[in-house]
Amino acid sequence: MTDSITLHRAPLVAAGLLLGAGLGGFVDGIVLHQILQWHNMLSNQLPPDNLINAKVNMYWDGVFHAAVWVLTAVGLRLLWAAGSRADVPWSGRTLGGGLLLGWGLFNVVEGLIDHALLGLHHVNEYAADKLPWDMAFLGFGALLLLAGYGLVRAGRHDTAVRGTRRT
């Protein structure tokens, strides 16, 4: 515990949020778009059932991957900056909580906007009933948010700052 400085956890949480959103986006893109091939960015609006539609969907999947790469890169930059500050406690629970919050936020925002509001795609375009898949995606996001919040709260007791970290 340190008495000489005020501790600030927000920089570590912010880094975790961006890293979590970016990495969560990569999980979505790699697993749901590429490996399982359940959907593409525009697959509900432009089914990839011919070469032109498939190419348009592939382009927008690439734009999506570029955006989550930028989120991840900015998150890494924020993590680097947080790690060099003496007033930021180095806490795996705080960072891990931020990662889960970011991934959960990605799922909830992406699920509400792309699946529900705009109808660009659904989690599983090939399912007879798409709603349970979309709801499960949102539910998983909500669970990630709750777990992340719990970890960030638990990390508020971590006080190891620069110079006092274990190597």
Rank of each mutant, 00 (worst) to 15 (best):
E125K: 08
L112Y: 05
G83S: 13
V109G: 05
H157G: 14
N124R: 09
L105S: 14
L151A: 02
G139N: 02
G111Y: 00
A127H: 07
E110Y: 08
L105N: 07
L144A: 14
T159Q: 13
V161F: 08
W80D: 14
G139P: 01
A116W: 07
D129R: 08
M135R: 11
W80L: 14
A82S: 13
N107L: 06
H121Q: 12
L95D: 04
L146R: 13
I113H: 04
L146M: 12
N124Y: 04
G98I: 05
E110D: 15
N124K: 07
G163K: 03
V108I: 11
L145E: 03
F140P: 01
L117I: 12
R165Y: 05
A82K: 07
L151V: 00
G119K: 11
A160Y: 07
L117C: 05
L144K: 02
G163A: 03
M135N: 07
V161D: 07
V123F: 05
M135A: 13
L99D: 00
S91D: 08
G111F: 00
W103C: 11
M135I: 13
G83N: 15
G155S: 04
F137Y: 14
A136F: 10
W90K: 15
R153Q: 15
P89W: 11
L145Q: 06
E125C: 07
G92L: 12
L151N: 02
G148Q: 00
P132V: 04
L138Y: 01
L138N: 00
L101H: 03
R165P: 01
G119A: 09
S91K: 06
A147D: 02
M135T: 10
R165E: 13
V109R: 06
R93G: 10
F140G: 13
H157K: 15
V88R: 13
A154V: 03
W80K: 15
A142I: 15
A82W: 06
K130H: 12
L151E: 00
L138G: 04
A81I: 10
A142N: 02
G141N: 00
V108A: 03
R156S: 12
S84M: 15
W133I: 03
V152P: 01
L131G: 05
D158I: 02
V152F: 00
R153F: 03
L100Y: 04
R166I: 09
V161C: 11
L146T: 11
R153G: 03
V152Y: 00
A160M: 10
R162P: 01
K130D: 06
G96W: 04
Y149H: 13
G150Q: 08
W80E: 14
A142L: 15
